[in-house]
């Protein structure tokens, strides 16, 4: 009895000691996370300062929310926020369903070897480097490039697609779908392959055709996966695409192409307004976090599926 009472007090140190090797293992990993993730998070305080590299964080002057104000009242705020949202909403609208549809279609193929070959081929774009993908896009989009050659067959006028505010987003979004549709369909295909066949048989006996079985058996079966993927996608809504944007855009298309993170890159890093850049970055991350939490809450209410 006495031992049982004493146990909690003694146990923390004793239990830690018992697992000492685990802490030893974790040490380098924790150091990595602190140095390369949490130091930078701490460094976010420069968003509230006039950070000068010479003075350091401790010596620089505090300016409160000045940089946030500068950004939000500046003439580019609306442009970059709008572009970020528009690009990502289009991606959500077209890019998110695309792999689900592809998976549903592939799942209907009966010839397994053929199906496997097509799958393998469709993953490939995911492994091609972004620089190469963007290099191809630049090349194909030129007025004598492949895209224009194809478009010309349908009577379109030749124009440099990436240099036009009218077409930039289309190129960006379609190429994004191209890069990811196959890879992102893997997870849906895997959950489709675990659908219990007896459900299909029962539905068939009840007279359900192919289409109705897809609608009433397959889609409900993968719905939890879809929801989780959707929440994660919304959680990245504002943080994606800066590498691609920086590779693809040019001053002529800033009106439709410039997004928050590329704005941070140009003004914060290239023009070395570190504090301003950090402030815009904080703004971006916070909005992102709000999206993630909202999506998670909504989904928990509606579907009882959530990340946490």
């Amino acid at each position: 009895m006495k031992r049982a009472i004493n146990r909690p007090r003694k146990s923390l140190w004793a239990r830690m000691k018992k697992h000492k090797y685990i802490y030893l293992m974790l040490l380098p990993v924790v150091i990595y996370y602190i140095v390369f993730h949490y130091l930078a998070m701490g460094g976010l305080v420069i968003a509230f300062q006039n950070y000068k590299p010479k003075l350091g964080i401790l010596g620089s002057k505090w300016v409160g929310l000045k940089h946030f104000e500068d950004f939000l009242t500046g003439k580019y705020a609306w442009r970059v926020i709008r572009n970020t949202l528009v690009l990502n909403l289009y991606l959500l609208l077209f890019g998110f369903p695309a792999p689900i549809i592809l998976a549903l279609l592939m799942n209907e193929l009966r010839d397994n070897a053929y199906k496997k070959t097509l799958q393998t081929v469709s993953y490939m774009p995911h492994f091609i480097s972004l620089v190469v993908v963007c290099g191809l896009l630049v090349d194909f989009s030129m007025s004598d490039g492949l895209f224009n050659n194809v478009l010309a067959l349908f009577g379109f006028e030749r124009t440099n697609l990436l240099g036009s505010n009218q077409y930039y987003r289309t190129v960006y979004i379609v190429s994004n779908i191209w890069q990811n549709v196959g890879w992102n369909s893997i997870i849906y295909l895997a959950s489709l392959s675990s659908v219990d066949n007896s459900l299909h048989e029962a539905a068939a006996i009840d007279g359900a055709g192919r289409l109705r079985r897809i609608w009433h058996v397959n889609i409900p079966a993968i719905l939890p996966v879809i929801v989780i993927q959707l929440i994660m996608r919304i959680g990245n809504l504002m943080s994606q695409g800066y590498e691609k944007t920086i590779l693809l855009y040019s001053p002529v298309v800033y009106e439709t192409a410039d997004i928050i993170s590329s704005h941070v890159y140009r003004y914060g890093l290239e023009k070395t307004n570190y504090s301003y850049g950090a402030a815009v970055g904080v703004f971006n991350s916070l909005v992102n976090l709000v999206f993630l939490c909202t999506a998670n809450q909504v989904s928990r209410r509606l579907t009882e599926t959530s990340l946490w």
Binding site: V30, L39, M41, G42, L44, G268, N284, S285, L292
Partner: peptide, 25 residues
Amino acid sequence: LVFLFVFTMYFSGGLIPNFLVIKNL
């Protein structure tokens, strides 16, 4: 510890602070 690791998937210091960390190191 799990939280410490997973949190970084959803929130990061961002471009500028990361750059300054590398520079200051």
